[in-house]
Simulated assay, not measured.
Amino acid sequence: MKWLTVNCTEELPKQWDQLAGENIFLKRRFLQHLETVNPCQQTYNMLLETDQLKAAYVDYRLKPDIFTYSIFTLKIPVTIMGIPCSVAKEGFSVCSGYEKFVLAHFQAKKGAKLILNSALGLPAKGGNTLPSCKMEVLWSSFNQYLESLRSPYRYRIKKAKKKWQDVKVDYIKPHAFDRDYYQLYEEVYLNSHAKLEKLNFEFFQQQPLPSIIIIATHKEQKLGFAQVVDNGRELIFLFIGFSHKLNSTFDIYLNLLLEIIDFAIDNRFKTIDLGQTAEETKLKLGSELFTKGMYISHSNFLLDKLANQYINLFSYQIPIYDFRVFKMGETDENFTS
């Protein structure tokens, strides 16, 4: 076995995409896009055994707040194994039985290291990053979806929809994305509690993935947008932007999530990945939580020991939710909110 590290996607073999499988963000086309619009010292690491690719991962350099999910604040340079654009997918793919080699290779790098969004349990002590919210699409129409909800949750959606009745919703391709909508993305980013990197305008406008941007306007006023990606049977909610000042007037955030669900139903997707953050709102729409692992290490023995001993300080503490969103064969008269 041998490891090969390169600094450019043009040097990656076709086997890389084959190993990436259904992770559209780990494929060469998207990674090449990120090299252009979000350069952050990316490297691409491959484990080869008799010329067969057994493991692959992306890492990049960033200076995040390592206490994002706690009351403390500390920004230090970190090498991150992940997709360099804050998506809820893993930055690695590995054949079964080779996980320990990926972990060992990454942990051998100098300085502080962080593995984000791992859906796969790695052979190390880990914590949690933000969970992902996913929804199965079980309905043939949006009205059928509404009727499947228990009355308190249906009432909340209908209340939001009343605020949305004079709003115009359109679908545009990435090349039509403009600076006004980008400013709404920046507004959301600035108000976010879990910041990593801020993406530039070209990330959206030059998006190479099969993407649609849902836009909402009211009397020429741009209210917000939601970008979604077609990943075969799965619709992925990527990024959002909206006016915080007008959010309560139009219930923009909730209504854009509902537009995503409506779009998924109309286009017969099987699942929706609603991403991370705002999990309470998304759970009340009927999604489920999927935990994502986080692993921390450091080349300094003492710092590595301390980081792993107190990993809960870095880890996201997932609240306990108990929402019964769907009827499950019951009648509305049986429901209590």
Rank of each mutant, 00 (worst) to 15 (best):
G241Q: 04
K162H: 12
E333S: 15
S315A: 09
Q227V: 06
K100I: 06
I83A: 03
Q42L: 12
Y181K: 05
L130T: 00
T68W: 04
I260C: 04
L12H: 03
E220I: 09
N38K: 10
L184S: 07
D166G: 15
A278M: 10
V169G: 06
K198E: 07
I212F: 08
S132A: 12
I252A: 04
S248H: 14
T277G: 05
Y321K: 07
Y185W: 07
A216M: 09
T217R: 08
T217M: 08
F239E: 02
M135S: 06
A216V: 05
G121M: 11
G97H: 08
A56I: 12
F92H: 03
D251H: 10
Q18E: 15
I66D: 09
E49N: 14
G127Q: 08
I296S: 04
Y253E: 05
F72I: 13
I83K: 01
N38L: 09
L196V: 01
Y189T: 00
D266I: 06
V188T: 08
A104F: 10
F237Q: 03
A20S: 11
A124Q: 11
I172W: 08
P208Y: 09
L184H: 04
L62H: 06
Q42G: 06
I115T: 01
L235Y: 03
S315L: 07
L238R: 06
F290K: 15
N334Q: 15
L303T: 08
L48H: 08
D170Y: 04
G111V: 09
V58I: 13
Y185N: 01
F269K: 01
L62D: 02
E280S: 13
A56W: 00
